[in-house]
Amino acid sequence: MAALLEVRDLHVAYGQIDAVRGVSFDVDAGQVVALIGSNGAGKTTTLRTLSGLQRASGGEVRLDGDRIDRLAAHEIVARGVAHAPEGRRLFPRMTIRENLDLGAYRRRDSEVEADVAMVYDLFPILAERRAQAAGTLSGGEQQMLAIGRALMSRPRLLMLDEPSMGLSPLVMRTIFSTLSELKTRGTTLLLVEQNAQAALGLADSGHVLETGRIVLSGTGADLLRDEGVRKAYLGED
């Protein structure tokens, strides 16, 4: 059976600069896949291309076997791909509740209310502040809302870009324990992280990106044991 998401020889260019140069990987349903690598390795560009914010200059992206790399961003969301972007990108002057409702923008079913309750259950602090403007939240709360908002579309694939960015270790642990809760519920996650330790600890498989190419792939546990990875990304000598 084909993977949920298939990325084949993906190329993305900004003008003359090739940011992503032939990246291929799969994400199977129910799996957690991590893309790790340093700044400028092409991780964010890869995610932005998968969600349609950026155009691929070459290669293919398939969701359930169907090409999605030519679709507009809002059509890709409709196919079941949610993207919690780098920097959270909430709607700062709208309330938490309104942000969550926008996450469910494409939905026409009657279970939106139940999913709002599910998000509040996952992140109780959001329930307390539901009427507050998103721009007034702390960094950790904003990240929780960004994840909650992405979940509101009931995605088949949830892509998270640097959920740990700018967070204290304590808040980061809260976020990752929620992600591991989502994993046990069977949510398919594609996770971009600079924090390789946390990401690989959660991931079934991982890929290391360097200057737009995948240089190493393996299970999360293998990569955590890999000497090169330990040196380059976990700060060990």
Partner: peptide, 10 residues
């Protein structure tokens, strides 16, 4: 407020 983020909402 954020056109790109709006696209990601569908």
């Amino acid at each position: 407020q954020d056109p790109e983020s709006a696209k990601l909402m569908g």
